[in-house]
């Protein structure tokens, strides 16, 4: 069943892709095949393989139980939040909390995970910013 749903999404994606390719505007330069031919080929392969998934699905993959699924979604949400807040809050603070969340979910005690988070954030800041000179998000406090 998963493969059928996946195939359905793939087919929708392929149709969208071919439609999006059909509205590509020509610029003042032209060549023989133009900018749409190759995307059409790619879209066709997407569509054909998706139809194959619907027609001949594989065995059901081992999906995680609901709780583990929530784990994945929450972790993704935390990473999204991290990406959004990074430039506003600054590297050290946001990294402390993001790392603390991940290490907590992987089984560290709550208080220890804050410490692990802080050490990771400071460690990366020292190694990559102070020693190696990489640009990290600065935030209002400058770190």
């Amino acid at each position: 069943m998963s493969d059928r749903i996946f195939g359905g999404f793939g087919l929708a994606l392929a149709i969208f892709y071919i439609w999006a390719a059909s509205i590509i505007k020509d610029s003042f330069m032209v060549d023989v095949v133009g900018p749409r031919a190759f995307p059409y080929i790619v879209g066709t392969v997407l569509a054909l393989t998706s139809i194959y998934f619907i027609a001949r699905p594989d065995e059901e993959p081992k999906w995680p139980i609901l709780r583990d699924m929530a784990e994945i979604l929450f972790a993704t949400a935390v990473m999204v939040l991290y990406a959004l807040l990074l430039s506003d809050v600054g590297f050290v603070i946001s990294t402390t909390f993001a790392t603390a969340y991940l290490t907590w979910r992987l089984g560290t005690q709550p208080l220890w995970s804050l410490l692990v988070g802080l050490l990771t954030a400071v460690g990366i800041y020292v190694v990559f910013h102070l020693i190696l000179g990489l640009a990290l998000a600065e935030g209002p406090l400058g770190f």
Binding site: M79, A83, L86, A98, L102, T103, L106, T108, A121, I124
Partner: peptide
Amino acid sequence: TRILMPVVAMISFV
């Protein structure tokens, strides 16, 4: 790995 994997994630972000 509970310490290692978050560090890997953060270095990817960096």
